[in-house]
Structures are given as structure tokens and as C-alpha cells.
Design a protein around this nucleic acid. Structure first.
Lengths: 238, 238
DNA sequence: CGGCCTCGGTACGGTATCAGACAAAAGGGT
DNA sequence: ACCCTTTTGTCTGATACCGTACCGAGGCCG
């Protein structure tokens, strides 16, 4: 996309690049559709492309040898993948896939890597994003350890809401149960709790945020720290 | 410590630096004692020094606004702190402190930063470590979500054992309960389980690994993934 | 030795969540 | 319109873990 203008993109990392860096990169950016379930990166495999979403939400999921899994982070227009390319690590052991469909840009990692090596400012920018992502993972870990399912669900809905345009998030209970690493019926009852408090509407295949602020109050201890860290490092993204 | 020879250090990251990089750094390394409880870095504060432990174990702990806390990672001679300096992030929101006393080296972050900026190889080395650390955090998160307390305890003992010289690890149940984010009596009973299976001895203030291999088998699904990732990125460290 | 403080063991009731199964409802395709 | 699949709601019993409290045991100090 040689003619993509930086002010027109929505991905926060692309927006934050210096004009010089952006023009060097944009020559190689291809727009891509990111349908639900699309694999941005597979565990232990070197990714061919780096992705910068414009819309939609991606999940990063860790899987244990015996097949247990849990989501350790999400990102949308606030981020990119793979972090491994920023850290000279080649691959990482996670599944990264689209959870809410969208679109974005991709660039071959073979092209991105040399750009990173010669452009310290770019490397620092993406480094700060990696920090934000890993802080998000850390607070997910804390939340998994100490918070109840309904609070974790509220946190998760808020994080998705931050990354979408409207108030609708379309996903099934089944899917949510994987993200939160709980039973599917536990999601159903937790959603009923949030609905009973008039924080959300819940319909088949879709959750609608009804009272964002009250939802934040409900999530209380579970939501906010990693968002503050992102803000400090990279500014607001919506 | 201008006369520190690279082959004599035990910290794996220092060992892996190129001789040129090491000699540039070693001029500024000061040896330091790291007593139990020593704060390597405080939340939201820019660290004055970077630390490279030679012995002992440090914990990285996240705290929620309401004061809940959980350990998200540990490191000893396999690592360093703060990761933030590698990622141009200034600070991070965690408490990092010595959990098992030891010693190591420190270098002023003001001196380390310019070295990182001009030495891409060094930045990549520490970048790979940051990846290893964040993978460790991710699997901690998974473990918090899906594994039982006794398995998580076994994992945790194994991770400490990897980073110490003998088979003894000295810490109290109280301390362990904070690390695992569980009640203190839950630690007591979980330790009894491991002891009953003859995997460890447990005495006042100290845990002794008795059958390392069986302990790994017990931890099974909880232990190993992040260790494999470290090995891939940075090799063995003991 | 006696006192004290830290640390570890145990007990009791309560509950969040699990495991598994089943049934009702909502769509989609032919 | 119908069937068939996907998604959601609900039930039943089990259990892992919690909050709290209390007591014994080990180590340290005068």
C-alpha cells in the first residue's frame, strides 16, 4: 500500500511511527482481511508476516502439553504481532488468532526485521508495546489467580469494548469459556449476573455493553492497571 | 569490577555476551549482596540499577489496586532486571525483590541504556531474555487458571530448584502462599501431599527436594514449557 | 529455665466452581 | 415448512479452596 497515508490508519503503533519510518514501512504494508478464527501466528512456528490490525480483536492463547488452554492477552488496533520479531526470538509458543473479525495490514517479517535493526526508534516503539502486552499478561495472571469469574468476565468484556467501535461484541459462551479458562455453563451464569445488574445485554452470539461505567465499577480490582500502563507508554488508542 | 573474567561469572546473560560487549559492561559492574527481601525494583519507579544475579532467587510480583497480589515470574542467574530498560519503558508496575538471598552484579541503568542503544547484539540477547521471561509469565497465568494447588506448588519448587545449587530451598509457608496467591494453610496441606509422595522433605523454614524426577512427573502439565523456551532462546543455565 | 515470637498444623462451615448430562431455543439450509 | 446444528439455559452431585480461628511446636533471648 504505497499510498496509505499515516493519518488515515487506525492502528496505534503505525500512527505513532515517525513519518520517515512510516513511509519506509508503508511501502511494504498490504491490507488484509482478518476473518474470525484467522491464525496470525502458530505456536513454535516462525511467522511469515507481522500483522497490524485496524479493526477486530485477536487473542493470544497459551496451551499446556496436556491441552489445557487459557488466554493470556488480547489486542486490536492497539497492537501488533508477533512480539517475537521485536525480541529477536523467531517464534513464540502461543496461538494467536482473530476472535472478532476485522481487517488490518501485514508486512513480511523478512522485511520488517532489517527495518527494526537499523531503526532504533522503531525498535523502541515496538519494545514499549511488548512491555504493555506483557504487563497485560501479568495482570491476566493475577486475575486468574484471585478474581471471581464474573469479575474476570467483566474485565474481559471491557478489554474487548476498548478495542471495538460500537457497543456490540459478537461471540459465543463456548468461546468465552475458553478465553477465561472456565466451564461453559459458568460463563452463562456469570453473564446472567452482569445482565441482572443491567451492565450488559446478552443475546445469542452477541454481548452488548449497556453501562460501561458501571461495568468498570463492577470489575473494580480486575480492570485498569494494564490499561494505565499502555496509556503511559503509548498514549490513547481510540 | 574491571577484573571480573567472563568465564568466572555465573549469570547466564553475562556469560552469553560477546567478549567485546562483556568487557565494555564489566568495567561498570559492581558486585552486590542480595539479602532476602532486597528490593531490586519498585512498582512505577525508574530503577537506578540493573541487576544480574549470580546466586539467589528474585520474584516479580504484581499487585492489584485493592492489594491482591500474585507472583508472575522468578529469575536467578538465568536473568536480569529490569526488563523495562531493554524495552525503553522506563519502569514497570511490579515489585521485584529477593526471595532467596544471594549475590550478583549491578550496573547503573544510565550506563546500560547507551550500551544497549549502540550494541544491537546486546539488545537482541536481552530481548530474547525478555521473551523467555514473558513466556514464563504466560505459563504462570495458565497454571493459575487451570492447575490445582499441589501441582502449582510442585512447579514452583522445580523452578526454584533450577536456580539454586543444592536441594534446599529456604522459605516459609506464609511466603509461599503469597507467591501462589492462595491461603497459607493450603500451602501446608499441599506440601504434605508432596511429602507424602516422598517428592520432598519439608521442615520448618526449608523445603528439600528429594526426588527431582518424580516431582517433575507430579507437576506434569504445569512444568516445562517455559523452560523449553528459555533453552531454545538462551541455552542451559546451570 | 521461662517467655516470646514466628511458624506450622488442624478444624469447621461456607461457597465458587467443576464435571457431566440434558433439554430448550434460535438459526440455517434444502 | 422442515430438519439439523449451534447455542444457551438448567440441574445434580461432587470437590477444591476459602475465611477464620485456634493451638502446638520450634527457635531465640534474657
Amino acid at each position: 500500500m504505497a499510498d496509505t497515508r499515516q493519518t488515515a490508519v487506525r492502528n496505534n503503533l503505525l500512527r505513532l511511527m515517525s513519518p520517515a519510518t512510516f513511509s519506509a514501512i508503508s511501502a511494504h504494508l498490504e491490507p488484509v482481511d482478518l476473518p474470525r478464527g484467522f491464525e496470525l501466528s502458530e505456536p513454535h512456528e516462525e511467522a511469515e508476516y507481522a500483522y497490524f490490525p485496524e479493526t477486530g480483536i485477536a487473542s493470544i492463547v497459551a496451551r499446556s502439553p496436556q491441552g489445557q488452554h487459557a488466554e493470556i492477552g488480547i489486542f486490536g488496533r492497539d497492537g501488533m504481532t508477533p512480539a517475537a520479531v521485536v525480541l529477536d526470538a523467531g517464534s513464540d509458543p502461543f496461538s494467536i488468532f482473530m476472535q472478532v473479525e476485522g481487517d488490518g495490514f501485514r508486512i513480511s517479517t523478512a522485511l520488517l526485521k532489517p527495518l527494526l535493526d537499523q531503526d532504533g526508534e522503531l525498535k523502541n516503539l515496538l519494545g514499549r508495546y511488548v512491555q504493555a502486552l506483557s504487563v497485560q499478561g501479568a495482570f491476566t495472571s493475577l486475575s486468574n489467580a484471585v478474581h471471581h469469574i464474573d469479575e474476570r468476565l467483566a474485565r474481559w468484556i471491557l478489554m474487548c469494548h476498548d478495542r471495538t467501535d460500537g457497543d456490540e461484541i459478537s461471540l459465543t459462551h463456548e468461546f468465552l469459556s475458553i478465553m477465561l479458562a472456565v466451564r461453559r455453563p459458568s460463563v452463562t451464569t456469570a453473564l446472567h449476573v452482569l445482565e441482572g445488574r443491567k451492565l450488559i445485554y446478552s443475546e445469542r452470539g452477541v454481548i452488548i455493553v449497556r453501562d460501561r461505567q458501571a461495568l468498570e465499577e463492577f470489575a473494580a480490582d480486575a480492570y485498569g492497571e494494564s490499561e494505565r500502563e499502555y496509556l503511559r507508554l503509548l498514549g490513547p488508542y481510540s
